[in-house]
Design a protein around this nucleic acid. Structure first.
Lengths: 157, 157
DNA sequence: TTGTTATCTGCAAATCAATTGCAATTGTAA
DNA sequence: TTACAATTGCAATTGATTTGCAGATAACAA
């Protein structure tokens, strides 16, 4: 789990880019710290709501990269636990930095008319989840909780 | 909204097919009771887990209809509240009869390795949901709660 | 620095779920 | 039985996501 040769790696990193938890995780997973990956994570850091791959692509400025590269990287970043994937039911996956990377664990309230997304802190009780998991013999259980409705502006429609 | 001429309609229905809540709702929504719709609902009645459109299509026997017809009908049936749509994150929507149509309100625990689906009765507390809705000024708020993990058989993988 | 190598990237083509246009068919109400 | 809107089959299309492949590039050791 920890770096095998911290001193040597540290020197190396200082030369190339600032040491962050991000690069730490990438390297631990034998992944390269590439320009597209840093650019994608930068975009996510600057946005409060989860973004689609297309939105991420549009938000990349001079650090532009191929859309396919973004798709591939979102899988990688999700696998390494750097981003969290959401599906709000409109056909496009959305991503935001995972809890360990800035934002805290939370869920979303989505307006089904205008797609406004609001963060919600309420969460499904952990003890209930454990009970469900053990009752069915499941491990590695996580949950996904999403709220949908009409936001104030869309109610008169 | 209510039947304009209940007596006449009743006779009519008895001749064509048994009066059910299904046909009742279809007619209330000015929808026709067609063979594909009855066949789709029959398939859903016979299955415990939510099915994809493709699975429904495959399960239709002699009552086969075009896949596009199924897609169109799932929208209609969802709109009328006859079926409930789920998204377990593997790219294909799934459907099951809604609470009023046999099954009770519940959520799912899905194995991310073999796609085993188990029903879960635990639910997000109603009072919390109301609080969230009013705090953000939303109305028509519903929630989607899904659990994912590894089922007993897939844990050794 | 330099070389080696596995990982990445861009580009184009391919998938796959879901949607849509249109002409023919069918359920409903009168 | 008639009239008409709703529905269907079929083919073509859309839009998100994936994949094959050849040419870069980051990581690491010499």
């Amino acid at each position: 789990m920890s770096s095998p040769c911290a001193q040597h790696q540290h020197v190396h990193r200082l030369i190339q880019q600032p040491l962050t938890e991000l690069t730490e995780k990438l390297r631990r997973g034998a992944r390269k710290v590439t320009a597209p990956r840093q650019a994608i994570l930068d975009v996510l850091r600057k946005h409060a709501s989860p973004l689609t791959n297309k939105e991420i692509h549009a938000a990349l400025g001079k650090e532009d990269c191929d859309l396919a590269t973004i798709y591939r990287n979102m899988h990688t970043l999700e696998l390494l636990g750097l981003v969290r994937r959401y599906d709000f039911g409109d056909g496009a996956a959305r991503f935001e930095l995972s809890a360990e990377e800035g934002s805290s664990h939370h869920h979303h309230l989505v307006c089904t008319r205008c797609r406004l997304i609001v963060e919600v802190d309420e969460c499904f009780p952990e003890e209930f989840q454990s009970a469900i998991a053990s009752r069915h013999g499941f491990t590695q259980v996580q949950h996904r909780l999403e709220f949908t409705g009409w936001c104030p502006k869309c109610q008169s429609r």
